[in-house]
Simulated assay, not measured.
Amino acid sequence: MVIPVHDVNPVRRTPWVTYALIAANVLVFLSTPGLAGSVAGDGELVRLCHLQAFMDQYAAVPKELIHHQLPRLVPTGEVGVGPHGPGCVVGPPGYHKSPALSVLTAMFLHGGWLHLLGNMLFLLIFGNNVEDRMGHVRYLLFYVVCGYAAGYGFALLNASSGDPLIGASGAVAGVLGAYLVLYPRARVWVLVPFLVFLPLRLPAWMVLGFWFALQAVYSSGHGVSGAGTVAYAAHVVGFVVGMLLAWPLKPGTPAPPEPPGLLFGRRARPYYTW
């Protein structure tokens, strides 16, 4: 897997929406009970119970999205002692939850620092140019639509699942799909792990095409055990929807500049001395 660090594709306007989305995701993560913003001194079980209750209330659950009804018993966030020892208490939901709205709130929830930083890195690198091409308002609507498409697409494929679905990955995948359509020839600096991290400048179609191919393979269950705990199918759906929504903008999109210098580790054109 390659790690993108920078693209050679300048923008005409400040990507305020992209910055705001990144800030919102970080703030929500820091305030999520049981994660980075947990109260110091809480025991491991207390943090786990708080996190389970929070995720159950605000994450998107495929079974709830498809059947539009809440379970009778949910984690309450409290710790109790049962026949098998201490554990998280469950009880009737003490809140009203809209399954449709939970798709939106789930876009700002992440399960750990690696999950958060990975999504925000891709959003920062590729989101600014997509926002520059679409404009602030259309870009925000595009982001939300891709997130909803990814969430409901995953739910349709996993209608019986009661596991929470969280993360901005589906919406960010839509941004990647749009970037691939609009700027396939833009150059992207990536780090390729090969004994050490090798810096290479590759075309966007290669970087994003490889990323999408991996998601498609993993979503089918190949390459990972049971597709792991990552919603790869949501990535695939979000990416395809992003491509389709961006396609009408492709004819009027100016080509990115072709930078001189190194390409695939070699010079793109020779230098002559006279």
Score class of each variant (00 low, 15 high):
residue 134 M to L: 13
residue 257 P to R: 10
residue 117 L to A: 11
residue 139 Y to H: 11
residue 79 V to C: 04
residue 149 A to K: 01
residue 266 R to N: 10
residue 271 Y to F: 09
residue 81 V to Y: 15
residue 76 T to P: 02
residue 186 A to Y: 10
residue 117 L to Q: 08
residue 159 A to H: 12
residue 220 S to W: 06
residue 173 A to H: 07
residue 255 A to K: 13
residue 254 P to Y: 13
residue 193 P to D: 07
residue 4 P to G: 06
residue 115 H to A: 09
residue 141 L to V: 08
residue 214 L to N: 12
residue 20 A to F: 06
residue 60 A to H: 00
residue 70 L to E: 03
residue 194 F to I: 03
residue 13 R to A: 12
residue 197 F to I: 11
residue 28 V to G: 00
residue 68 H to G: 00
residue 16 W to F: 08
residue 200 L to Y: 06
residue 15 P to E: 08
residue 1 M to S: 14
residue 237 V to T: 02
residue 241 V to N: 05
residue 251 P to D: 02
residue 44 E to H: 06
residue 126 F to H: 05
residue 203 P to H: 12
residue 213 A to L: 13
residue 151 G to Y: 06
residue 123 L to A: 04
residue 120 M to R: 03
residue 72 R to T: 14
residue 255 A to E: 13
residue 56 D to V: 01
residue 110 H to A: 13
residue 78 E to G: 05
residue 30 L to T: 11
residue 213 A to W: 09
residue 23 A to Y: 07
residue 2 V to I: 10
residue 192 V to C: 06
residue 218 Y to Q: 08
residue 270 P to C: 10
residue 233 A to S: 12
residue 86 P to E: 04
residue 148 Y to V: 06
residue 130 V to A: 05
residue 39 V to M: 09
residue 62 P to E: 00
residue 172 V to Y: 04
residue 4 P to T: 02
residue 12 R to P: 08
residue 95 Y to T: 15
residue 17 V to R: 07
residue 70 L to K: 02
residue 246 A to S: 15
residue 8 V to G: 01
residue 267 R to V: 05
residue 3 I to Y: 06
residue 9 N to K: 10
residue 229 T to F: 03
residue 182 L to T: 14
residue 274 W to I: 15
residue 241 V to G: 03
residue 170 G to R: 05
residue 3 I to C: 01
residue 260 P to V: 09
residue 136 H to V: 11
residue 47 R to S: 04
residue 214 L to S: 12
residue 253 T to M: 05
residue 49 C to F: 00
residue 2 V to S: 13
residue 77 G to E: 08
residue 273 T to E: 13
residue 100 A to V: 12
residue 61 V to E: 01
residue 206 M to W: 14
residue 138 R to P: 01
residue 86 P to Y: 03
residue 244 L to G: 07
residue 44 E to Q: 08
residue 183 Y to M: 09
residue 136 H to R: 09
residue 186 A to N: 06
residue 233 A to P: 02
residue 226 G to Y: 11
residue 71 P to G: 05
residue 178 A to H: 10
residue 127 G to E: 11
residue 62 P to C: 03
residue 243 M to C: 09
residue 245 L to Q: 05
residue 26 V to L: 10
residue 1 M to D: 08
residue 116 L to M: 05
residue 251 P to S: 15
residue 142 F to T: 11
residue 47 R to T: 03
residue 77 G to M: 01
residue 236 V to A: 04
residue 130 V to N: 10
residue 41 G to Q: 04
residue 208 L to Y: 04
residue 82 G to V: 01
residue 156 L to W: 11
residue 77 G to R: 07
residue 211 W to P: 00
